Structures are given as C-alpha cells and as structure tokens.
Simulated assay, not measured.
Amino acid sequence: MTVDAKTELRRRTLSRRDLVSHEEAHAASIAVGERALALVRRFAPRGAETGEVVSVYWPIRSELNTRPLLEILAAEKIATALPVMTAVKRPLIFRGFTPGDDLVKGPFGLSEPAETRPSFDPDIVFSPLAAFDRRGYRLGYGGGIYDATLSQLRAKKRIVAVGVAYACQETDSVPTEPHDQKLDFLLTERELIEFS
C-alpha cells in the first residue's frame, strides 16, 4: 500500500473518531478504564509489590480519554508512566506520573512529565492509534514512534502492547511493513480483542 493510501486510511478513520459525541466519549473512557484494569490485573496481579509499571498515553485531540484509567490505576497503587516523545521514528521514553502531578509542554507541544521525574521501561504499554485491524496491526499517526518503542522494549523483556481506540476506527486491513509491531490486545468501548 502506498503512502498516499495510508494517509487516506488515516484521514478516514480519524474523521470517524472526530464524530464521537461528548456523551459517547465519556461512556467509552469509563468502559475502557474498567476493561484495562482487568487486563492490568491479569499481567501485573500484585502491582506495586512487584514493581510493574504501566504506560498510559495522555490524550490529545479526539483520542479516547485515558485519564479515568490513570485515576483507576492510581487508586489500585499501580505505578504509571507517561510517554515522552524525543524525535520522529525514535523510541519514546517513559517518565513516572501520578494523577495530580504537574505536566509540562514538551518540545513537540505535548503534555508530559518534567525531566526530573524518574524514567522506566514499562511492562504494559497502552498506545493510541489512527486505525486497527483484527490481525493485531495498528496504523499510527505516521511517525513510526510506537513501532520503534515496542521493538526496543521487546528486545529487553516481555511486554504487553495494548492499542486503545473507538470501535469506529476498525478497518478490514491495516497496511503493514516489515518494521511494524503487532499489538497483543486492542481495547475499544465495546470489547477487548486478544491477538496473541
């Protein structure tokens, strides 16, 4: 599939995502938060006791809101981190975050923890996306950042990669390239899809 075709698929699915109403978005964030907690308990059942860290993205634009999930994980005393973008096609770094912490504007205009916060290699990574298919592939925003990140983390240890999206972002087939990293799970407001 050409770059133009990827761009068009991204445009279509993000346009659908932009049509989600405020009420639907709120209900989706609660449903995803509850399903996500069950998934975290499955892979990090003792949370703080064993030191597992869960990375959750800070939502921008019309991304599915993960702030309720961050609150749920904090209430369960599960350590969380937010991703920090350093460059296009370069792996993210992850800095510790607890709801209530101040965020700063990073060099790419994103809200992120300050450089003084500790960094981690997370065990579970919740990632945003533009589109997904039932094979476990995601179409991101075109920067290759999550593919680079998942590749780097998987070279170090076993991690769980979870895409987060609205059901309306599903497509029949996401175009893939050799460097594309598959997800282990996909969470929507309707279901949890397991790929591995």
Rank of each mutant, 00 (worst) to 15 (best):
I145H: 14
D102N: 12
K182H: 10
D184G: 02
D133K: 11
H22T: 10
R138D: 07
G144S: 09
R154T: 13
V104Y: 02
V164A: 09
R46S: 11
R11S: 12
T86H: 14
E177M: 10
V20R: 01
V54F: 05
R17A: 10
R138G: 13
Y141A: 11
S119A: 13
G136I: 03
I145K: 08
F97P: 03
F43C: 05
K157G: 10
F195W: 04
D4Y: 02
A44H: 06
T50M: 06
G96N: 00
P118C: 08
P59G: 12
T13F: 03
H179S: 04
R12V: 14
T86W: 01
G163W: 01
V162A: 06
D4H: 09
T2K: 00
A161T: 05
K105F: 13
P91A: 08
L39V: 02
T2S: 15
L139Y: 12
D102V: 05
Y141D: 07
G47A: 10
L103E: 06
I93V: 14
A74M: 00
E191I: 04
L183E: 09
R90Y: 07
P122T: 06
L103W: 06
E191D: 11
N65D: 15
F185Y: 15
A114T: 10
A36L: 07
P45G: 10
E23M: 04
R41Q: 15
P59K: 10
V162D: 01
K77A: 14
G100Q: 05
R46N: 14
R134P: 02
A27K: 14
V162T: 01
Q152F: 09
S196E: 10
G47T: 09
T176Y: 07
S62Y: 07
D172A: 15
A165K: 03
I145M: 13
G163Q: 02
L186H: 10
R117A: 15
E8I: 11
L192N: 07
S15A: 15
Y137I: 05
T98Y: 02
A36S: 09
Q181H: 06
E112S: 08
E23V: 04
V125A: 12
G106Q: 06
P113H: 12
T2G: 15
P128Y: 02
K89T: 14
K105D: 13
A130V: 03
P45T: 14
A25G: 12
E23I: 00
V160C: 03
R134T: 11
K6I: 04
H26Q: 15
Y137E: 09
